[in-house]
């Protein structure tokens, strides 16, 4: 399945958002995730199924003004 993760295309055999994070080695309680422009809460990642061409954003804290 083709997925767009933080703007880059990946071809991955995953079914849920939690699996995607594990496969790409994203971990940490500081991450926030969104799929197709909608927030997916931390607790909902395991149950959130992904579909071909989904756009996933994975953000983390950064310095800011």
């Amino acid at each position: 399945m083709k997925l767009i993760v933080n703007g880059e295309e990946h071809d991955l055999a995953v079914t849920t958002l939690a699996e995607l994070l594990a496969t790409l080695d994203f971990e940490g309680d500081w991450l926030a995730t969104a799929v197709n422009g909608e927030l997916v809460h931390r607790a909902d990642r395991s149950a959130h199924s992904l579909n071909d061409r989904d756009r996933i954003e994975i953000l983390s804290p950064m310095k800011g003004g």
């Binding site: 933080n6 703007g7 953000l59 983390s60 804290p61 950064m62």
Partner: peptide, 9 residues
Amino acid sequence: VSLRRETAG
């Protein structure tokens, strides 16, 4: 503070 894309891994 802010938020930005995290890099894979």
